[in-house]
């Protein structure tokens, strides 16, 4: 099956394994943990070797990861339905407030028509829902050549850039 993961505008393989505790996990496996499991076993997670990622749900507070920047290589934000827009604020807070610079991946009900907005608030990876083709979706990143607002992608709003 063709990959449906886009990372930094390229098709990419998903190496991450969902886990609840470090127990029984190969030492070098890339482990993706829910926020609750992360907070419950933080020390145990930190003690292991492989890369770590946290999976956020729409209601999760991204500021809970403020002290974990040093050890996170992935944060995923779930969109149970594309019309649930909380994840857009989650992403901006992670990038702009928490200062997270690693891979930020939108997962769930993710398809072509959201990619432009998602990339502007700081997502650099998209796991497309089943049935979507990555080529079609990639083109959507360039739907608009300009945008008015300040965003993660272009921190200066258009009105400041117009001055130049």
């Amino acid at each position: 099956m063709a990959s449906r993961l886009i990372h930094q505008r390229r098709l990419s393989d998903d190496t991450w394994r969902v886990a609840q505790t470090p127990a029984g996990l190969p030492a070098d496996a890339d482990a993706l943990v829910s926020l609750a499991d992360w907070l419950a076993h933080r020390d145990a997670w930190r003690a292991r070797g492989g890369r770590l990622g946290v999976a956020l749900e729409p209601a999760d507070d991204p500021l809970a990861l403020s002290d974990d920047l040093d050890c996170l290589a992935l944060v995923t934000v779930n969109f149970p339905a594309f019309t649930d827009g909380r994840g857009y604020s989650t992403a901006r807070l992670l990038r702009e407030r928490v200062g997270y610079a690693g891979q930020l991946r939108a997962v769930g009900d993710v398809f072509k028509d959201q990619l432009f907005y998602l990339s502007r608030v700081g997502f650099d990876a998209f796991l497309l829902r089943e049935g979507e083709t990555a080529d079609d979706a990639l083109a959507a990143l360039d739907t608009f050549s300009e945008a008015y607002q300040a965003s993660v992608e272009r921190p200066e709003p258009l009105f400041r850039r117009r001055l130049g």
Binding site: F82, G85, V121
Partner: peptide, 13 residues
């Protein structure tokens, strides 16, 4: 108008 047009964070309120 310009701020709200395609505001990326607030398209799905």
């Amino acid at each position: 108008r310009q701020w709200s047009t395609f505001h990326p964070e607030f398209a799905f309120l």
